[in-house]
Design a protein around this nucleic acid. Sequence first.
DNA 1: ATTCCGTGTGTACAATGTAAACAAACTTAG
DNA 2: CTAAGTTTGTTTACATTGTACACACGGAAT
Lengths: 210, 210
Amino acid sequence: MATKHSPLPIAQGTDLRNRLIGEAIAILEHEGLEALTLRGVARAAGVSHMAPYRHFTDKEALLAAVAETGFRELSADMGGAASKTATAKERMRAIGMAYLRFARRRPGLYRLMFGPVQPDETRFPKLAEASRATFAHCAEAVAERTASTEQANAGAQEALPLAAWALVHGLSSLLIDGHFGTQRSPEDEDRRIGEVMALFGRIFQPHSAS
Amino acid sequence: MATKHSPLPIAQGTDLRNRLIGEAIAILEHEGLEALTLRGVARAAGVSHMAPYRHFTDKEALLAAVAETGFRELSADMGGAASKTATAKERMRAIGMAYLRFARRRPGLYRLMFGPVQPDETRFPKLAEASRATFAHCAEAVAERTASTEQANAGAQEALPLAAWALVHGLSSLLIDGHFGTQRSPEDEDRRIGEVMALFGRIFQPHSAS
DNA sequence: ATTCCGTGTGTACAATGTAAACAAACTTAG
DNA sequence: CTAAGTTTGTTTACATTGTACACACGGAAT
């Protein structure tokens, strides 16, 4: 029987738990965030509509777990993109582009991650941690970059990661929410993204009185 | 029903349509987006739960109308802030700060505006128009600013408004979604916002090989 | 074996979005 | 002014959702 008494209480959920998360992500991709329903997820997993409650206290907890998975995947994407680069500058751009690509590839999941579920530290510590880790990933790359071009302003040093994240996140959000270029051609959209990302590099230049 | 202080200076006639929009905004502010329900709005307005259907084809149409109102108010805020400035540079900053202030003052409404209702040109032309007008407001200020500091890159000329909007929008979103500084003090948060906004000005400087 | 507990099922209920039939008030033609 | 139609709101009804509760089944510890 291989009695594997788990020595660590790592929340290694049952198979169903992960299956539910997977089905939820599938629904998010195919039908969107509005169509994500607890009963629908249970149906997709082939269990009764009450089964999820054995693994999540309520719908919000499921959403939090899904969002957490999303943050982990986003972190992995950024890490993979960063590992393929040589310079700190390239790394920054690669991470930003990975972020953007993630948002465009999984708009439903992305909207959930930054949408209805607040990463409340006390209620969803794992989600809060995953969100923090994602940001830390960005911040590290930014710090590395600012270290290469010596930076005068110490306050900016702290604010730069925030600004970088805000820019990429804002661009992603506007993009997938159709707030510009809805009817434009895809290559046109890509071109604009490239231009904005180029501008994005300017915030790392020390200021000159203009 | 005692009329709670109307938070928005909307045309308040006997017109149920506008009353519904007003109540929806009030609910958005007090209870948040998740609590915004068609029946709840009708209840708040003191009518039967089917009355709204005489003015909106479905819930999404109500949300679109509310979002449209939000965009108009945001545009007005930005316009008011801009009118108090002298230089193009100040105007830009004032508009950005007005945007941020709006998001923090009405997080529920803001989330609706950039959330579930896509500004679909064919389904909600008025909403699409209001969203476009808001962006045009930003773009105009940016163009004015770039005109003052002569700009070399023509591509950047087109992308600059996008970048500016993305940065301010991203900062607003991260802020109200609690993705950083959740537990920090308010003045600390304000300081960080100021720093990021300062960085924000750098994207207008022509690039130098760094 | 018996007991217990983790996991899943069925039933039940309140809230929601929406359809359909109806009613009262206002508008307009005669 | 009356009669018809239109606008606006109401009541009733129903499917879907999130969730509480009681139960069933299978393995683990006693």
